[in-house]
Amino acid sequence: MSHLNDMALFVEVARARSFRKAAEALGMPNSTLSRRISELEKAIGLRLLHRTTRKIELTEAGQLYFERSKRIVDEARLAHEQLGAMLEQPSGVLRVSLPVDLATFYLTPIIGEFARHYPGITFEFDLTPRRVDLVAEPFDLAIRIGKLEDSSLITRLIGRHSRHLYASPGHIEASGEPARPADLAKHECIGMLRSPIWTLHRGANKVDVAVRGRFTLNSVGMIRALAVNHQGIALLPEKIIADDLSSGRLRRILPEWQGSPVNIYAVTETRLIPAKTQRFIEFLSSRLMEV
């Protein structure tokens, strides 16, 4: 890279036929520019310039070196400009594995906004519960929620769910309202599979409650629907039930307490990702970190 930079400096001097004019155009001291060209001549073992007090002329070797250097420098600049344009407006197919509930309740409007910003990108989304193999399958990235398994994959935290307790007015009327977290053990609670313990926080206080209920499942959307239909108390992110809350279909209970936040991650096979993937991750992070 240093040699290419010195080559670019030489091209500017050769074009200007003046160290002073080239130094002014480059925004660097004349003495520094002269020293760099002298070092370049020593490095390649050729005298490139005839220097006099009045003017600079190219030697025969300097003329050949100028023509070669000009072509290389111009190609490098063009490649840099093309890369910059590609980074500004990335294109291609973006293949992403997404959790069904996150995609349905959060990401659809965010992805629509992203698509308007980057019209050159097309999308292929896999909305299944399975953990795709980012090494063996042709995905650019996966969005995952909750605790991640140890692996060699690259993970980046891009968002966080805050969760609260909700129940329908009908359920509260029929079963009563818990007054403290321990009361949840006596109520019908709608839980996630393999998560029988709800950890609740109030400031510095933390309590674990073993919940029970007739329904345990792996769909946040269905947990919400069951709660709306008076089947029990649910621990859910507020944005998922915002419409139900404003319409009165659900009420927040134990409002001083909240559940442990759930992290949202972008997972890639490598840190060396294309611009389309990098922009998508950055865009999601800018929106989901506000959750």
Rank of each mutant, 00 (worst) to 15 (best):
T53N: 15
T155V: 06
A142V: 04
N229Y: 01
G92D: 05
G170Y: 04
E149Q: 14
L193Q: 08
G112I: 03
G191Q: 08
I56M: 09
A136E: 08
V228E: 11
A25R: 13
M7L: 14
F280G: 06
R131V: 01
H201M: 08
V96L: 05
S247C: 05
R287L: 00
L98A: 04
R35H: 05
F114N: 04
T104A: 12
V132L: 05
M86V: 09
L254I: 07
D126L: 11
H161K: 13
G45T: 01
E57F: 09
V211T: 15
D74N: 02
L193W: 03
S195Y: 02
Q63R: 15
T52S: 15
V291W: 10
H187C: 01
Q278G: 09
R54L: 13
L98M: 15
V207H: 00
K55N: 11
G84S: 12
G259Y: 02
R279E: 12
S168R: 01
A167M: 08
I223Y: 00
S219W: 03
L33G: 07
M28G: 01
R95A: 10
L4S: 11
R194M: 10
F66R: 00
S175R: 12
L157F: 05
D6Y: 00
T32K: 05
V13R: 02
S97G: 06
S69N: 07
P178Y: 05
T155M: 04
L254C: 04
H164R: 14
A242W: 04
R180K: 11
L58E: 02
H164A: 12
Y106T: 10
G221T: 13
S34Y: 06
P261G: 07
R77D: 10
K276I: 01
R212A: 13
L4C: 01
L245N: 06
G170V: 11
G27V: 02
L226S: 11
R194Y: 12
L9R: 14
P261K: 06
S31R: 09
V13C: 12
R279H: 15
F114G: 05
F283S: 05
I44Y: 02
S246F: 02
P109S: 06
L4M: 12
G191W: 02
E256K: 04
V220F: 08
I264V: 11
F139G: 03
Q231M: 09
I264T: 07
T52G: 07
L40K: 00
G84D: 11
E81I: 14
T155N: 09
A210K: 01
Y106E: 14
A275L: 04
L250A: 02
Y118W: 07
G112E: 13
E41G: 09
P196G: 09
I172L: 15
N205R: 13
R68M: 13
K55V: 01
T104L: 10
P196K: 05
T155C: 06
R131M: 01
I233V: 14
L64Q: 13
E124C: 07
P99T: 07
T59Q: 10
Y118L: 05
F66C: 08
E57N: 13
I190N: 03
A234N: 07
D243T: 08
L40N: 03
I158G: 10
Y65S: 07
P237A: 10
H230G: 00
F66Y: 15
P29I: 02
I121S: 12
L87A: 08
